[in-house]
Amino acid sequence: MRLPFRRRAVPPDRSGGGGPPDSDRSTPSASQAPDRSDDHAGHALRAPSRLHAFNRYEIKYLMSSTAVPVLRKELARRLDADSHGIGGGYGVWSVYYDTRDLRFYWEKIEGLRFRRKLRVRHYGDRSTVDDDSTVFVEIKQRVNRVTQKRRVALPYHLARDLCDRREMVAHEPGQRAFLEEVLDLLCRLDLRPVAMTGYQREAFVGRGAEAGLRVTVDQRVRGRDRDFDLGADAENRLIIPARLAVVELKANERIPYWLTDLAAELNMSVVRISKYCQSVEAFDRAPRSVFHVSDDDPSGTPVPAAARSEA
């Protein structure tokens, strides 16, 4: 039986001034397509750069894992496969930082119009992570219906110096303002690692008129609430039932009709799910909210006939 989520009063300075920090004003508009100069069909947003910033709209769905082959086949007809994930996809591992009272978690649960989170993310096999592996320090925030991301690529040892030891690190020109913002959040809010998530991702990217479109399919969503070293040989457990996949549709301006029609045809359920919040609740750091996906949740269970014949 689920516990109702609790509501919390919002302190006057919850958003550090009521809106995005000044550095956000330089982020590109939602109509600008992300830079794909390194690989037009790849994960350009993962390319190391001085500072990468972008805006987009996102819709999340849950679907039965048994229907993924049908979705994959339909997406391959209209979109290009992410060249970094050909042959089974790639791992995505993230360490999330929050306050002692889980301020960022509650901002998401309460649906604040301006909210954000800080994380360190690695793409690939976590067993290969060492001090020199490239990771990304990222601030992801929501402003009304638009998702904004700003991130820098750093060697893992520098990311830990910044986020765990709260020290300014060597950086390239153009990165300092963002790193100072990260340090301000860490020190002012006393942030610390709270949860870790990992999953296997397949990604598809738009071409031509749909160049800003991106679809990701995440399976085997796992997590842990301790041993936050990205390369640690630590035990993870499923935080979303293995029978379900999380599908995200991401676009600079709007999701094309053919894609939303496909989601309806495959019985995909729109959800307000957060992998970070799911991990927090799975390890009993907070009561399970109305958004929590549990083993007995029927969401995503229906499997269309096409998926049954494909399996």
Rank of each mutant, 00 (worst) to 15 (best):
H292I: 02
D38A: 15
L183H: 02
R7L: 14
S29N: 12
H122C: 09
A242T: 07
A76L: 13
A170E: 15
D38I: 10
R25C: 13
R285F: 10
G223A: 09
R103D: 13
Q278A: 08
D125I: 03
R121D: 06
Q175T: 01
L79N: 04
R150L: 07
S279R: 02
A245L: 05
M63N: 04
D164F: 01
T128N: 10
R25M: 15
S64R: 00
A251G: 08
L179Q: 03
G85D: 01
D130V: 11
G124I: 02
G198C: 12
R151H: 06
R56C: 04
E202I: 03
P69H: 09
F136V: 03
R224S: 05
T99N: 07
D296Y: 12
V146Q: 06
L112V: 08
V10E: 13
H52R: 13
A81V: 14
R272T: 10
L191Y: 00
P298R: 11
A307G: 05
D13P: 10
L102G: 01
G212H: 05
R165L: 13
S26D: 14
L45K: 08
R272F: 08
A251I: 03
G206Q: 02
D164M: 04
G212E: 01
V152A: 04
S299H: 10
M196A: 09
L185A: 05
V215T: 05
Q148K: 15
R121N: 08
E210Y: 09
A305S: 13
D284R: 14
T147K: 08
D24T: 11
L230S: 05
R78G: 06
G18H: 08
L71M: 11
A76W: 09
M168P: 04
L162W: 00
D39I: 05
E167H: 12
R226V: 10
L79V: 09
D184T: 14
D227F: 12
E110G: 10
R113V: 12
S133D: 07
D227P: 03
Y199N: 03
E58R: 09
G91V: 02
G300Y: 00
S31K: 13
S294F: 09
